[in-house]
Design a protein around this nucleic acid. Structure first.
Length: 190
DNA sequence: TGCCCGATTAACT
DNA sequence: GTTAATCGGGCAA
């Protein structure tokens, strides 16, 4: 298990710097989680971002200080987890799309109702369910305090990039990042 | 108040 | 490859 906890300073930078550096980092919530293998970057200057419309009740956390969790409801069904980045006001966030399960496998299997390790956290909605992410419990919480723990990677992996998944606006921006060759990606990179 | 649609998933054919 | 499930945000009326 990595030892260096990522503090707020790490997230107080451009999403375009933070997102690729999160590939290979370890995310735990209440001790349950694993290695981040896929993320996407969003920024308020671009219409796919929730912050593009300006501050609202839903996206308020994105306009707050970096290093905090932004949780939103996806398709009325799933909870998705983001890390707020950028200096105050720039309203950027990194969506956690897939994790390689390492800690708390039993809890994740129980929450997902599934045995297949490969399908536990390979998608943003699946990550939310496996790590018990909900807005009322986690939205706005600091990422360097319990129940969160995010650890820096200890080796620099090969990063794959591509266009973001499931969006129609700004669909051509290559702001999806993944761990090259990982079998826990939500979709393969081309 | 009503309507449209989405940073998805799972179960189909 | 197709589609139902499900609900709140954002905007028009």
């Amino acid at each position: 298990m990595p030892k260096t906890l990522l503090r707020r300073r790490f997230f107080d930078r451009s999403v375009h710097d933070v997102a690729p550096e999160l590939i290979g980092a370890t995310l735990l919530i209440n001790g349950v989680g694993g290695r981040i293998v896929e993320v996407e970057a969003y920024h308020h200057t671009e219409p796919a971002a929730h912050s593009f419309v300006g501050p609202t009740a839903r996206n308020a956390v994105m306009f707050g200080p970096p290093g905090h969790a932004y949780v939103y409801r996806s398709y009325g069904i799933h909870w998705c987890l983001n890390f707020v980045c950028e200096p105050n006001g720039s309203a950027g966030a990194v969506l956690i799309r897939a994790i390689e399960p390492l800690e708390g496998l039993a809890a994740m299997r129980r929450r997902r109702g599934l045995a297949d390790e490969r399908l536990l956290c390979s998608g943003p909605g699946r990550v939310g369910q496996a790590l018990a992410v909900t807005r009322d419990k986690l939205n706005g919480l600091a990422l360097d305090e319990a129940p969160f723990a995010v650890y820096a990677r200890e080796e620099t992996p090969e990063i794959a990039t591509g266009v973001r998944i499931g969006i129609t606006k700004a669909a051509d921006l290559p702001w999806r990042y993944g761990l090259k060759g990982s079998r826990f990606l939500s979709k393969p990179f081309k």
